[in-house]
């Protein structure tokens, strides 16, 4: 009990220099996993400029967003009554908006709401889309046909119009926004997963899994699904960028999240009234934040795509 098990294993491994003989009883997985993940992340980040920039931006947003309450002491809803539309200064780094609220505090706090909505919506659409896509691709038949036609109908609507209609018709704004983004993302994940499954369904190892006596759901989950992961990861980053855009776009046109709540789209809309008279800061700063996050996700998607390309190594 005095030494942790992996130290012992490492010690017993050292005196055997030949690579072919493995150390006895090493559980490669459990103790090394977090470290290996960190090493993998570092290798990915340093693999290209896009990977480095994308990962840095996204990680920075996640960390700053999570710690927003600690990092920025100013309440994003506090009204500085005498300081309406105050330009950027030492006191208000990004100035104040037309309501006299601190633009910096609001821009930072908006990370939370934009990220939470996008991540939740994309997570829901992955779960639903991948599950339906797996079944549709593997089983086929009427289920696949009906599902695909329903998705055709869904995708035939212009995304923003559909989102507008759904969100405007419902009361609870945040839940409605999450719902509508998930609804728009689900067809993407269904089609992608189904396409992958179709190309894998006839793979020899899937037949072998059947010959071994696997149940259909286990074949889908254990044998097919893991092989659909690379495009899924790429698509996730793409859809996250797109979802952040939709959240902000909805707020910008005035549905979904409403003004006092710190949200980039709503802030841009509210500030746009003053841009012509020279008070650019209430819209430009949230706009830049939005742009930077979307850029981060897109760079990440590109970098993952390059990284997972088997022809690379």
């Amino acid at each position: 009990m005095s030494t942790p098990p992996n130290d012992k294993a490492a010690a017993s491994a050292r005196p055997m220099p030949d690579a072919g003989t493995p150390p006895a009883h090493v559980d490669h997985d459990r103790p090394g996993r977090p470290k290996a993940a960190a090493r993998g992340l570092w290798r990915f980040m340093t693999s290209s400029m896009a990977a480095f920039t994308g990962t840095t931006i996204v990680l920075a947003f996640v960390v700053v967003g999570a710690l927003a309450d600690v990092l920025v002491r100013t309440d994003p809803l506090q009204v500085f009554g005498s300081d309406l539309l105050h330009p950027p200064s030492a006191e208000h780094w990004f100035g104040t908006d037309g309501n006299g609220m601190d633009v910096f505090a609001r821009t930072i706090h908006a990370i939370q709401i934009d990220l939470v909505i996008s991540v939740t919506a994309v997570a829901i659409s992955i779960v639903v889309g991948v599950a339906l896509g797996l079944v549709a691709g593997y089983r086929g038949g009427w289920f696949e046909m009906v599902l695909l036609r329903v998705m055709d109908v869904l995708q035939a609507f212009p995304a923003l119009i559909l989102a507008l209609a759904v969100v405007a018709a419902s009361q609870e704004s945040i839940a409605a926004v999450i719902f509508v983004i998930a609804l728009l993302d689900i067809p993407v994940f269904i089609r992608m997963t189904r396409g992958q499954v179709l190309s894998l369904r006839d793979a020899m190892y899937v037949e072998a899994a059947r010959a071994t006596g696997n149940k259909p759901w286990r074949i889908m989950w254990r044998h097919i699904m893991p092989n659909t992961l690379p495009p899924l990861i790429i698509q996730t980053a793409v859809r996250l960028a797109w979802s952040v855009m939709i959240v902000s776009s909805l707020a910008f046109v005035g549905v979904g999240i409403q003004v006092p709540t710190p949200e980039w789209g709503a802030m841009i809309r509210h500030g746009s009234a003053y841009v012509t008279s020279g008070q650019w800061w209430p819209s430009v700063f949230p706009g830049l934040a939005l742009m930077l996050l979307v850029l981060g996700f897109n760079l990440l998607a590109d970098a993952i795509q390059d990284h997972l390309d088997p022809r690379k190594d």
Partner: peptide, 8 residues
């Protein structure tokens, strides 16, 4: 090569 799942 084809009949063993590459990810297992």
């Amino acid at each position: 090569y084809e009949s063993l799942n590459p990810r297992m």
